[in-house]
């Protein structure tokens, strides 16, 4: 096969792949605007926004959203300091100890989410604490702190330690040097880590489902509604999720582009 021939083949293949990725989402979006229940695209009864109204009036969705926000706040408050502490500690340990600690800290990312959820519930059940929002927060923190730790670690590796040493030589206390030099250097990472922690917590299903007991978040509620797919209000919510994701992806792309430009300026 000639090189242009295989290039064309790859292009076609990529087109099919993109169709495969986006067509199912398109079908789900279309059913959200169809005046027909249960959600369908094969029977078209005309355009409607009725399902958005139905979604708006759904109390369980709102209470789920409130729980999601509560959990997110707590997870961010726990996972950011823990991840940062882990990354800072890692940089000050000997090779072997750092290796062990690192393995322990990334292990939640390699563990199935349902295991993280159920082991947290088992542990706290032994202490007479039953499953609920509290255990969901802890189970999510277990692996979200791993993400924040990796992000802080990557940033800290790029830090110029000379600045910190200069501050110490000039008589700053270690805490002052951290607060005035390291912390400002970490600020962009703190922000992106908070965003990632927010998204991971909000979107999480498997871990939360096993850890939350009788309570519900927006996403676990969506899960139980989807099982029987009775009302296109779920599709309406899906459309809102997709819009939010597009906005997020564009913001992320813009941020990356700005970082790249800044890096080009620096060099």
């Amino acid at each position: 096969m000639t090189r242009t021939g295989s290039g064309l083949l790859l292009r076609v293949y990529m087109g099919v792949f993109f169709l495969y990725m986006f067509l199912p989402l398109g079908i789900m979006v279309a059913a959200g605007f169809n005046a027909y229940s249960p959600p369908s695209v094969t029977v078209w009864k005309g355009f409607t926004l009725h399902w958005f109204v139905e979604l708006w009036q759904d109390d369980r969705m709102w209470s789920g959203l409130a729980n999601s926000v509560l959990i997110e706040g707590a997870v961010i408050a726990l996972a950011l300091p823990m991840g940062l502490a882990g990354a800072l500690l890692l940089g000050r340990l000997g090779t072997r100890a750092a290796g062990v600690l690192y393995t322990a800290m990334v292990s939640p990312l390699l563990t199935p989410g349902i295991i993280l959820g159920i082991s947290t519930v088992i542990f706290w059940r032994g202490l007479e604490v039953s499953a609920g929002l509290f255990t969901a927060i802890l189970a999510q923190t277990t692996f979200i702190a791993s993400y924040t730790m990796l992000m802080f670690m990557a940033r800290l590796q790029r830090q110029d330690t000379a600045l910190e040493e200069a501050a110490l030589d000039l008589g700053a206390t270690p805490f002052q040097a951290f607060r005035r030099i390291t912390l400002p250097f970490l600020r962009p990472t703190i922000l992106t880590a908070a965003v990632i922690a927010f998204l991971q917590s909000f979107e999480n299903y498997n871990t939360t489902m096993f850890a939350i007991g009788g309570a519900h978040t927006l996403v676990t509620e969506i899960g139980s509604r989807m099982r029987f797919g009775l009302s296109p209000a779920i599709n309406a919510l899906g459309i809102l999720f997709i819009l939010a994701t597009i906005v997020f992806a564009l913001a992320w792309g813009a941020l990356k582009a700005r970082e790249r430009r800044a890096a080009e300026h620096a060099t």
């Binding site: 199912p24 059913a31 959600p39 996403v219 899960g223």
Partner: peptide, 13 residues
Amino acid sequence: AINELLRVFAWQM
């Protein structure tokens, strides 16, 4: 980045 549940639900439909 779209929620895993939505991707699954699309295929259920």
